[in-house]
Amino acid sequence: MLAIVPEAARFRYLLAWTALAVLLCALPLFLSYSQKEILVFTTINVILVVSYRHLTLTGEWSLGHVVMMGCGAYGSALASKQLGLAVPLSMLTGGVCAALVGWLLSYPLFRMKGFYFLIGSFAAGEVIRLLWKRFRDPFGGPKGLKRVPGLEEFEFAGLRIDFFDPVPYYFFSLAVAIVCIWLLWRIERSPLGWSYHAVHWGDDLARSVGIPTRRLRRRAMVTASFFAGISGALLVHYVGTVNPSRFNVEEMVYVLTWAIVGGVATLYGPILGVVSLTIVNEIILREFGLDQWRPLFYGALLIASVLFLPKGLESLVAPARSMLSRLWTRSA
């Protein structure tokens, strides 16, 4: 009898993961063309917001994270355009560029804490963004870079796969996203990840037992920047253009709200946040038309969610799961 319970739980897990996998694969079938494009962007944003949460593990909130995404985008675009690297390689280069910029910025920024870090990171990001805007060579100035090469099409089992189409690109970015999330999950569950938690919840205590808190914060920022850079590289090779205003503070505010509305205590919290807010903003509110009213509803939704769900959407998951398992045992 005792052995049966974990067996049943494992079966339920397997079932839930299979259902999720089927859903993710079947999703493009139900969507219109523009909704498929939104699906691609949402997948890319999932990487961005999960990497953002990785930075917040150490307790600091940044307003410069989309600029790290931009470093990846510009780095990858330049690597493929100017150096002629193959696109998958240039994407990695973009991630490395972002990680390098994150590493450089982490030295001055982690002298600050709290609100100072928040605004300091914004300022540092804004300086980088203004440099893209100011220097036409090589960044293209305010208009940015155009005609960035996309992923090459290839033949697979007689099927021609063209990455300008949203559906193949969705599956490509989904695969990248899964790898990124898995890596970030492994880091969080490693001793390094546990010391991030220590840095967050007991800064002085952690330091007193010999944990180098500032170095760990820097490491978290470099890791988070790398994955943000990957998401930017994914974006630029799909859209084909990149310009400085794509990475301004308004975009950053969206990332911040996704993370907080979803909740950052768990890995799936921010994913819930970005997916549900994107569905509401881009699909449901867009259906109603009334483009002028859209920000109004979105703003009201943000306020309602922090007032009535202070721990984020993720706090709904545990009750929902226990309710489902109760239903399951009752029917079994």
């Binding site: 709200t257 907080i260 859209r294 109004l296 703003g299 943000l302 306020i303 922090v306 007032l307």
Partner: peptide, 23 residues
């Protein structure tokens, strides 16, 4: 209502910002 929660206060004020701009 959000007195003990600065990050939620931040998000709430972002929400208000969007509402005021839209109005």
């Amino acid at each position: 209502p959000l007195r003990d929660n600065p990050l939620s206060g931040l998000v709430a004020s972002i929400g208000l910002l969007l509402i005021l701009q839209a109005l």
